[in-house]
């Protein structure tokens, strides 16, 4: 009995190098996730000996797991904060693989009641709790469901900086806190009076993006306006690659930047890097 277990163990030990599969763990932003997970599937088909696991959690989680060394590659949809930068201590390459627009998203019913654009000031008033009903900004008579995001989320940093003036600004008008893009999308589509922040690739029939009015100019959240730098809530989508990363991890990031990787970026709905 013990002998056979011993033999089995020995066999496992000796045979494993023959079938060595390398695993790359990638963690972070749920905005970057669709690109990376599709790329990972394709990459695995081309390199069957490399397994890639991709999981979400948000930009803050992605950056924290690189700091703590629990993942090989991090995803972030925002720049690192000074505090995070200090902890990363120059040991990580921060690579931008795409750009996208954070759309101000509203429920279908709100959009159809006539809200097609809001000024930065109006959106700020909603998030500060000064405007609580849609009819005060020209829409239907319903209390606004103001969706805020967890404080470390990349989308929130970008949104809060552009609308409220500071990436950590408080949103006293928030009626609920959401986490991932999926969760946010679900809440907006289930409500008839919601406003939230969502990457423009996640908009659909029930979750509509509205235009943002900046100093009198109305700008829609499209990739074209990200390209010409006019949309105020545009941002880069980052990959964090430790300098001591394995060759396989480095190779996968190169794959993301290659023509194949960039065509996935385009297909998901983000702006490929030039």
């Amino acid at each position: 009995m013990f002998k056979s277990i011993f033999v089995c163990g020995l066999l496992l030990l000796t045979s494993s190098p023959l079938y060595a599969t390398e695993r790359i763990d990638i963690v972070g932003s749920t905005t970057v996730l669709p690109v990376v997970s599709q790329a990972a599937t394709l990459y695995h088909q081309q390199h069957p000996n490399i397994t890639i696991t991709v999981s979400g959690g948000g930009s803050g989680v992605g950056i924290a797991s690189i700091i703590q060394g629990t993942a090989q590659i991090g995803m972030a949809s925002r720049n690192t904060t000074e505090e995070e930068q200090a902890k990363l201590n120059g040991k990580v390459d921060n690579i931008i693989i795409a750009a996208d627009a954070v759309a101000v998203a509203v429920s279908k019913a709100v959009y159809e009641s006539g809200i097609h654009a809001l000024s930065v000031e109006q959106i700020a008033d909603i998030y500060r709790g000064k405007v609580r009903n849609w009819k005060d900004v020209g829409g239907l008579d319903a209390r606004i469901v103001v969706i805020d995001k967890e404080a470390s989320r990349g989308t929130r940093h970008v949104f809060a900086k552009a609308i409220l003036g500071n990436k950590h600004a408080r949103a006293a008008g928030a009626s609920i806190i959401s986490g991932s893009n999926n969760e946010e999308q679900a809440i907006i589509s289930h409500s008839n009076a919601a406003i939230g922040m969502l990457s423009n690739a996640w908009l659909n029939n029930k979750v509509r993006g509205i235009d943002v009015i900046v100093k009198g100019t109305r700008i829609s959240p499209t990739i074209d306006h990200v390209r010409d730098n006019t949309y105020p809530l545009a941002r880069g989508l980052h990959i964090l690659l430790p300098k001591h990363a394995s060759p396989a991890a480095k190779n996968f990031v190169q794959f993301l930047l290659s023509e194949q990787g960039q065509s996935i970026v385009k297909q998901v709905g983000y702006l490929p890097i030039e």
């Binding site: 924290a64 797991s65 703590q68 967890e150 986490g179």
Partner: peptide
């Protein structure tokens, strides 16, 4: 549950 992932050890 919501914040543990982002909080650096």
């Amino acid at each position: 549950g919501r914040e543990m992932g982002e909080a650096a050890f």
